[in-house]
Design a binder for these strands. Structure first.
Lengths: 243, 243
DNA sequence: TCAAAAGTGTTTGTTATACACCCATGT
DNA sequence: ACATGGGTGTATAACAAACACTTTTGA
């Protein structure tokens, strides 16, 4: 029951619930991206209230009076995925007058990148339905959530070319081909393997784990991890990631 | 008097004024950049209340209940500069619990790029002080406004390398050297003239006005304007601006 | 031994960089 | 005539794209 209360409080989009202890007129909505079977997915939830199914929506919620904006986004992310410490950035604030049928609410959208394997979806009878939805098959969402998603997707496509954030969608250790597949999935293109390799390695942002893949039916690839330290160092010297 | 009322309503940072007809807990703050004598400037204002001078601050205000977020930002921009139709984009929303000493207010920061020559500052006894402040000489600002400015400045430096927005800081017609000076001012570096020329012209985003500079004590340079149409066209073909 | 993916090498054309140079104009 | 900035040319090095090739491994 306490959990259900939490959920109601956490969801701005179950309806015009009075947000006790929360700031009126502002909500948070999270765009949670994941990669599954080489496809880009987004986390959608759907409430079942009095046996009635609401439309699919982005996971969102209200902001407590004593809670930083970013902390509210983290809390909502954790509530639906159980993960912490993942990539989470503010996307944009959506504030059209009539974006919700009840009252005036501006929503601050955040986007998160998670590796789906770390991320078992939390859904049962007391909680809303949840699914990883392929980015190409997104249904009509509640309110202006399609608009938020479209904006976020464009933003991600641009961002991934200019900042090394793709790694957050992969497990800690990954092969170069997994990384390439990720770029191909997000940018919706095909890339040349040898050239992709060279380009990535030349940047010196990947650190070899000196470890091989296991359980593959072909030659095992070397595993790499993203070297955040090296990136900080290079950035401070004026390096700018470009893909 | 009506003007003064407007100003009070428009300024979230004159103090904890009750925002009648406005959304509580959300404000808008504008980061208005301009270029003057080859230096990057930001517009700051300062209120004089009961003969007491408040600290310098970013121009900001409340959002009316029947006004889109973006329209509020436009209104505040126009109030302080008189300009309309200039480059204005959302920067980020700042929502720390204690960012203001009175009450809980999240502020949506916008940034604008204007050519200062179009932009006589509106300031007199009834209005707040206003100044174009060199980016290197910014004083301590009210509340978290230094944080907002720092974030905006970093953002601008990054953005100008990846999107053709610099033109908005120049008059409609400009020379290649003016453009180069702009890049040097914002990126804080020096650039090679012939190479800058070629790089810019090769992108096909500049349209020659077939007109020369006037009133200069040396050979008059050709004037160019930014060709927004060409940019749209190229963008839709996958072109990505890089400087 | 074959399929599947790892990983290397090489060729070719394009682009960036650095810098030398000439041109036009007002004083 | 000379200072000032406008504008062009060019040699070199670095890089990107395309693609042929060898290597490793499990089935």
């Amino acid at each position: 029951m306490a959990e259900l209360d939490n959920l109601k409080k956490a969801s701005a989009h179950a309806g015009p619930l009075p947000p006790k202890g929360s700031i009126p007129n502002i909500s948070v909505d999270n765009l949670i991206f994941g990669l599954e079977n080489g496809s880009l997915k987004v986390l959608l939830i759907r409430h079942n209230i009095d046996g009635k199914r609401k439309p699919w929506a982005l996971p969102g919620g209200w902001i407590h009076f004593d809670e930083d904006l970013r902390d509210a986004a983290k809390r909502i992310l954790h509530l639906h995925t159980g993960v912490e410490g993942v990539y989470l950035e503010q996307l944009k604030t959506f504030g059209k007058v009539d974006r919700l049928p009840f009252g005036r609410v501006a929503t601050v959208a955040y986007y998160a990148l998670v590796s789906t394997e770390k991320c078992p979806l939390i859904a049962n009878d007391d909680r809303p339905d949840a699914m990883w939805c392929d980015i190409h098959d997104v249904p009509n969402l509640a309110y202006d959530h399609n608009e938020i998603l479209d904006f976020g997707l464009k933003f991600l496509r641009h961002k991934i070319r200019h900042e090394p954030i793709g790694f957050n969608l992969l497990p800690e250790k990954f092969t170069l081909l997994e990384l390439q597949d990720l770029y191909e999935a997000i940018l919706d293109c095909t890339l040349d393997k040898p050239n992709f390799r060279r380009k990535m390695l030349k940047m010196k942002l990947l650190e070899s784990c000196n470890e091989k893949q296991t359980g593959v039916a072909h030659r095992a690839a070397n595993l790499y991890r993203f070297d955040a330290e090296a990136f900080e160092k290079l950035s401070s010297q004026g390096f700018s990631f470009e893909f």
